[in-house]
Design a protein around this nucleic acid. Sequence first.
RNA 1: GGUGAGAUGGCUGAGUGGUCGAAAGCACCGGUCUUGAAAACCGGCGAGGGUUUAUAGCCCUCCUAGAGUUCAAAUCUCUAUCUCACCGCCA
Length: 426
Amino acid sequence: MLDPKLFRIDIEKTAELLAKRGFKLNTEQLTVLEEQRKAIQIKTQELQSQRNTRSKSIGQAKARGEDIQPLLAEVSQLGDDLEAAKVEQTQVLQSIDDILSAVPNLIHDSVPQGESEDDNVEIKRWGTPREFDFEVKDHVDIGTALDKGLDFEAGAKLAGTRFSVMRGPIAKMHRALAQFMLDIHSEEHGYQEMYVPYLVNHNSLFGTGQLPKFGEDLFHTELANKKFSLIPTAEVPLTNLVRDEIVDEADLPIKMVAHTPCFRSEAGSYGRDIRGLIRQHQFDKVEMVQIVKPEDSLTALEQLTGHAETILEKLELPYRTVVLCTGDIGFSSTKTFDLEVWLPAQNTYREISSCSSFGDFQARRMQARFRNSETKNIELLHTVNGSGLAVGRTLVAVIENYQQADGSINVPTVLQPYMKGLTNIK
RNA sequence: GGUGAGAUGGCUGAGUGGUCGAAAGCACCGGUCUUGAAAACCGGCGAGGGUUUAUAGCCCUCCUAGAGUUCAAAUCUCUAUCUCACCGCCA
């Protein structure tokens, strides 16, 4: 949610900034609504003020033992007027809110202009893709052959398409990856390890921006009167920890990491990445979240992106880092770095982490604030998060990059302690 | 699942229909005192919104949330959520 004042003070400039990301703001409509809002709001408050004074005078008249009948009639009429004004006000405010809640965040100046993902700018490339002297197989062929270490038929039987089952050493390596990441971030990068709910309420989803606009991307449950949704990322529970809080400035920055399953409906992605582990309804992810002071958010984003890169480097997986252009960046984000890992079977780099700064966009929705000791004011925090990393996709990358001619998979050195010293899966 | 008790400002905690945005204490901020600090004393101190050049005034809203009764609700009624206690069940 953007600051509503941006639409009052200089709506044309705001529209210009939004146009950068291809969002067309209906300025005429908003300007009209804004005029209506101002008029009706002033009128409503005026009526409320009158009613308050009159009501008080009734109390005083009564205390003096005077006849209050004439006063009662007068206030009754006021009440009717007020009721009507309130109805009108609610409608106008709702219309404005409907528009504003669909307006994306403003993009940071440093973000490159572009139309689509083709215009994202690569800013870093690490590692050299390995040369293979045999025919490269993809993770599905390798994993399925290894005693059904990856089993998509079983996943389909149990749940449906886009679900999978892992067995034996593959399942163990999946677990090892998550634990390895969690350990590095909590022990070397200064994040507090967290355990959080996988089902959250709608307030939480609104806070981080999944609702109201992206509800169809989620799995929802309803039990009696309780409405929960499965988290699409640990960003939701972790970030909402500061919702409706005034955080102590001394506690900033707050750095948290959690390993959770994530659930996404993948509505609208029929036919895409239908093979393998790349796009599943359920996948594991290690997520980092930072809650920071406004002036620190860009630095925090770069730092956090570096933390995600560290994992890939320790696993010795070649990757590149790109800045998402104005046409590809997410709704709530002000700047995003994607990490893309090399997948030999696809002969390309594929997204494995997405790190974003949201400025105060999420914080405003959440009313997540701190008291600034310099200005003495209560101010909105900034939120930053990123995957460090998507565990399922990391498993894919390890299987494909570490595959051997005989169909076995070498275990990355840093993972071996997590697998009882196992060096090769066959 | 059953029964009962609760939910008030950063925290603790008064307040049962009108003068309550709300006592008091703590915390915090400013001052006096002090070589400095502490203590003591004096003063200030909730949030959101509107209007406005204004973080000046003025006004509106907010005592978990939502509905209701009333001229008037922190206070009365209903519903929901959450917390605590005891019982039952359970990984």
